[in-house]
Write a protein that binds this DNA or RNA. Structure first.
Lengths: 141, 141
DNA sequence: GTGGTTGCAAACCCTTTGCACGGCA
DNA sequence: TGCCGTGCAAAGGGTTTGCAACCAC
């Protein structure tokens, strides 16, 4: 019926994970909330419609999802843990003042980086992922 | 007498900070420890020679030093806070397996990035610092 | 002198965990 | 039936904080 939920179920099953309501609701919350929500936000959002889901469970679900690469953990310098539902490689703009994270994507940049690291290998280190953290300030409107 | 300590005192004074023994010892510890020490490590190192310095004080000193840009905070996905005494721009190799951070510096890379962001400005965002987090694995020897 | 710093210890808060129960294979 | 997943509540552990004493300037 609900296309979004069917998709989530599919993604869980694909990883060989048991499809439980709790996992569905957490993944759904991360997608709905967007913008790198904290565990706290996710918990409130989930509990709004399902008050009987324990916060400990949400934390455990988040761990499972990260381990299975369905979401990512994001941490900034002065912040609690946040979660990111977007698995395609992308970079982050981070504004310390407002504690905000915004995504930044640009294929040209990724190309430039790939070319650079193709050329300059780092001895003794196998690169798996390259992320830019661009610190700065969002201009006030 | 001690050149290193004189230098530290100078750097504190330069920022208009009061030069207290606690601040000197903490800065000294970060430099001696290198390798992005945790607060815990810094506390032990400081307390080894000065057992009467409270851990709460170390945390407060670390905050002051970060605010005044004498050190940086570093956080990884699954880790406690770490501190970095190197203020020149540099990037980080991060190995999740061993929870290790190693510095990576290359002027050519910085040049490439500067050129790219010179060309592509990000609307509504003023860039202050660009950091690469290169995730991967250190090869076993 | 005096306002910023420190020591101490308690509080905080996010996160993890032990345990018994529940549900799906 | 067996086992993973969950709810609950308590513990954990890194970090922060209130307050009185202290000290750098």
């Amino acid at each position: 019926m609900n296309i979004k939920q069917e998709d989530i179920k599919h993604r869980l099953a694909e990883k060989g994970l048991k499809v439980t309501p709790q996992r569905i609701f957490v993944l759904d919350a991360i997608q709905s909330l967007g913008n790198h929500p904290t565990a706290d936000l996710i918990i409130s959002h989930v509990q709004k419609n399902h008050p009987n889901i324990a916060s400990g469970t949400v934390y455990r679900v988040l761990d499972v999802l990260v381990e299975n690469q369905l979401i990512k953990r994001v941490k900034t310098e002065r912040d609690v843990m946040r979660y990111d539902g977007i698995m395609e490689p992308h970079h982050h703009l981070y504004c310390a003042e407002s504690e905000t994270i915004r995504d930044y994507r640009d294929e040209e940049l990724d190309g430039i980086l790939a070319e650079y690291f193709e050329r300059k290998r780092i001895r003794g280190f196998n690169i798996e992922e390259i992320k830019l953290q661009i610190k700065g300030k969002f201009q006030k409107p």
